[in-house]
Write a protein that binds this DNA or RNA. Sequence first.
DNA 1: ATTTTAAGCGTTTAAAATACGTTTTTTATT
DNA 2: AATAAAAAACGTATTTTAAACGCTTAAAAT
Lengths: 241, 241
Amino acid sequence: MTPSSASTAQASNNDFYAAHDKLYVATDCIIFGFDDGDLKLLIFKRRVEPDSGIWSLIGSFVKIDEDVDEAARRVLKEITGLEEIYLEQSKTYGKAERDPGYRCISVAHYALMRINDHDRELTQSHGAFWYTLQELPQLALDHQDMVRDALDKLRRRARYQPIGFELLPEKFTIPQLQKLYESIYQRELDPRNFRKKVLSLKVLVKLDEKDKSGSKRGAYLYRFDSEKYQELLESGYNFEI
Amino acid sequence: MTPSSASTAQASNNDFYAAHDKLYVATDCIIFGFDDGDLKLLIFKRRVEPDSGIWSLIGSFVKIDEDVDEAARRVLKEITGLEEIYLEQSKTYGKAERDPGYRCISVAHYALMRINDHDRELTQSHGAFWYTLQELPQLALDHQDMVRDALDKLRRRARYQPIGFELLPEKFTIPQLQKLYESIYQRELDPRNFRKKVLSLKVLVKLDEKDKSGSKRGAYLYRFDSEKYQELLESGYNFEI
DNA sequence: ATTTTAAGCGTTTAAAATACGTTTTTTATT
DNA sequence: AATAAAAAACGTATTTTAAACGCTTAAAAT
């Protein structure tokens, strides 16, 4: 088969692929969760050769008739049982020698999920575990780079888009939200200024319930109002934490 | 050939590729230039079938033994004659149906270059032309999306990293720099505040020459001091325009 | 009852962004 | 030769936002 509608000047060359070689396309997922005041990553330990015992990100090859992001969603569902997960493309890793076994480029994606929502048995049956960033073991191939880059993207994006809420339960307290941002930005924030800031954004709805798990006094629960957020967006508002 | 060191849970499946089908990997380049006060894009018109007469970005397939970014650099050199161009990965386009001819994913890159540096004859011999964003014709496939996304990335990145200088000559005036940022951000900036801001960054060196092309009075030329910038970076400084 | 702890509300100070006035240098015009 | 025009260059005032920090409140533990 000859490419018929190549969009490029070089489309008519014939030297891209040696006949006996294949270029594979995969996707790897950097799955973030937030629990117990810490940002965590879901990684898994291979239990079959080759590389048995090595920790790595969760990934898959992209099927011939499948969108690349669809492949990432398929993997997420297989591992966590969840279909509606926040997913964003991170970066594509295309070094010719990145995988010693064969030529494969990987389109990394990062996902944000609520740890408590997932199917723990399913996750465990795949040999997957949650690790904090500090405890993260060595990962296979260039997966360490993938984590670094995804974390970088998450940090940048979290500041200007309300994606942090994807990591929290529907109802959360201001101190919980602060802990989340502290773990994303890796620095402490002033509780009084943080509260003032997030409430000034006008997208949090205060509920008539308190959460007592974090302190004696308990803190009011809030929820993120995404309709309000959409409205505000349309009238030229910009979110920033 | 069976993948030997697949990093994923699904590596042992056998259903990724039908035997008679192939998944191609390409790269397309969004090449930005700045001239005459306007941000421009280098695009080209196909002169052979299929799609003869259709404008598109410049791209190529990725060779089996070539890094993906290396492929992008190869294309840039073929088209412009330049080897040292600022190049950044933009995004990967992986919809199964994005190219009706065959399955191909494209890793888009954006490049920033000084329009006057390039080999005009070479560019012309490839049927490539510079267009302002306003005059841009319809582009093939999803190339319009690629332009939109790259422009978006450029805008975000230009604010916090000194990449704008890649689009200007070595020596430039403050008003020229302002025009560049105005065309990137698509909004007017106050000349007095702009000057104050960029000079406060301490990375511009004033030269003893004036450029008289832009006004009667002429404006002093400056150059970007990248050594100084690196130094400042290491002592926790952050650039922002 | 008193202490302790985090939640919640407030004020002050410092820094940055924005708005806008004035002077300077040169060319073009009268 | 004087004057007008235009952009460059420098400066100041005002507004907005960020950072620093004090105080009160609610509820559990002593």
